[in-house]
Amino acid sequence: MKVELNRQRVHNDFTKKVELISGQNLFACYQCGNCTAGCPVSFAMEIGPHEAIRYTLLGLEEEVLRVNTFWLCASCLQCTSRCPKGIDIARVMDALRAVVLRKKEREDAIRVSELPEELLERAPQIVFVSGFRKFLS
């Protein structure tokens, strides 16, 4: 992905919003990549969690909100428990989700009406309750 860096955008309002919602200081990240290495779903991510943090810190709002990284996060907290700088990365991923879901368009990340009938029959409630909390605005 081609990104254009601009000094004015570093740690901009978007970054501050993510920091506020997640309660994390993104400057603490030194890009070791431990989060991405331990992430069970990083194989399907367009950029790793550590990259998503860097993009956010650089104020690249459009670029980072376009990728699937934070939507794929399963909140398993592997990254959180392994971060040598004590950043709760899962909270950062959830904050990125929140930034999108809280926009005034209130656009959901999944279409409930399109979920396959077979899944609705088989899956336990717990999957839907937690899934809807993570994907619906």
Binding site: P40, A74, Q78, L115, L119, V127, S130, G131, K134
Partner: peptide, 12 residues
Amino acid sequence: ECCGSFQSVGSP
């Protein structure tokens, strides 16, 4: 390791 959790509805 994580089982995939609620991704069963997001990214099965």
